[in-house]
Design a protein around this nucleic acid. Sequence first.
RNA 1: GGAGAAAUGGCAGAGCGGUCGAAUGCGGCGGUCUUGAAAACCGUUGUCCGAGCAAUUGGACCGGGGGUUCGAAUCCCUCUUUCUCCGCCA
Length: 422
Amino acid sequence: MLTLKYIQENKERVIEKLKLKKLDATTIVGDIILADNTRKSTQAELDRQLAELNNLSRQIGALMKDGKTDEANAAKEKTASLKESTKELGVKLAETETAINSLLVQLPNVPHDSVPPGKTPEDNVEIRSGGQIPELHEKAVPHWDLAKKYDLIDFELGVKITGAGFPVYKGKGAKLQRALINYFLDEAEKAGFTEVQPPIMVNEDSGFGTGQLPDKEGQMYHVGIDNLYLVPTAEVPVTNIFRDVILNASDFPVKYTAYTPCFRREAGSYGKDVRGLNRLHQFDKVEIVCIDIPENSYNTLEAMVKHVENLVKGLGLPYRILKLCSGDMSFTSALTYDFEVYSAAQQKWLEVSSVSNFESFQANRLKLRYKDADKKTQLAHTLNGSALALPRIVAALLENNQDETGIKIPEVLIPYTRFERI
RNA sequence: GGAGAAAUGGCAGAGCGGUCGAAUGCGGCGGUCUUGAAAACCGUUGUCCGAGCAAUUGGACCGGGGGUUCGAAUCCCUCUUUCUCCGCCA
């Protein structure tokens, strides 16, 4: 979330910028500023009274020591009304802080100045593209038919075991998954990322830290008995490694990567867009997470984009990189690049990665800070990106690489699959 | 799941209900000494919210939350976590 200080100092800017995210924040921002002023004056008065109370207590202690019991008892009586009013002020302060917080969490991140204004995905801006859209043979079919024909993925079996959106990968289909995961992790390691295996269930604090909670809990699977959430992305557990942490300048750059299954309820999604691998409740993803100082975070973002681009290039997939317009960006992001690959049989662009700089928006929730050159504690910047999400990559690979007799495996994956064709 | 013990600053580890934000040691930072380094010695050393241009200054924080008291790291309740023993188990 945005910091109170930032809102106080940039009131107009926040309102203007959030309009680009389709939110009129005038009222919320106004209420926050009023409540924050109340908070400050309340605390000033509370502190004054507490100081007085502390003084009296010290005097009572001294009097007792000297055996002046009567004077001590007289002083005790003076504390009664002060205690009463500090209690009231304490309640008022807590209520004000709660009110401020419930307003603050409603405000999305402010888009970076370079974000193109816009409302819908049509307003996203293509940054660059690469790869060749293949010419498919006449009998080419979408990946769900290929999956069945070559017995790679069994969607019906997943329905039986769990439900729609939980496919079973089989044989070479399963091996292809494993190959992609290993390829992505190895490339991340080469690029200097430290691999971690985090828990795939997280608690409420973690969900809050990265911005899934409150309000978006409907998108996550909830394990009620222990009040835990299945991760929708490795971003959540990996970024939360750094919750309540103060980093030193020498700790940067922080670069982590993790493979995890991801679980998304995606309530309300039906129809042909969700066919096959296009949208699942459980899928695999390798994520990259970076933490950097504010002065460098946009360089880091570009480096992450380059890394993802190399992965897509390596797989030989036709791709394009979009800079999301303000209206299409997520709640938490300040700047997001989406990667799409072309899935030739469906004749569709499929989103396979989203790389974002959250600036200090998550860090403020996480209390993730660092000591700057002046030894002042400052909020760090957090970034993350998919590198990459598997299902749509598999869809595009199957569709684009099919010929009359099978499917060709990309060169870079053969050391991992140990077969060249399906 | 059952029984017991514990939770203090970056770490280790003290702390009769009163001047304890907290002894001491280690580590970190600055300095003296040294050609340089080590050792030794001296000094310094958290986070958050306020007031102030600033020097400075008020308040809060000893796992979380609540309570007793004029006053709580210290007493009481509760939750969480960790350790030991037993049970179960990939």
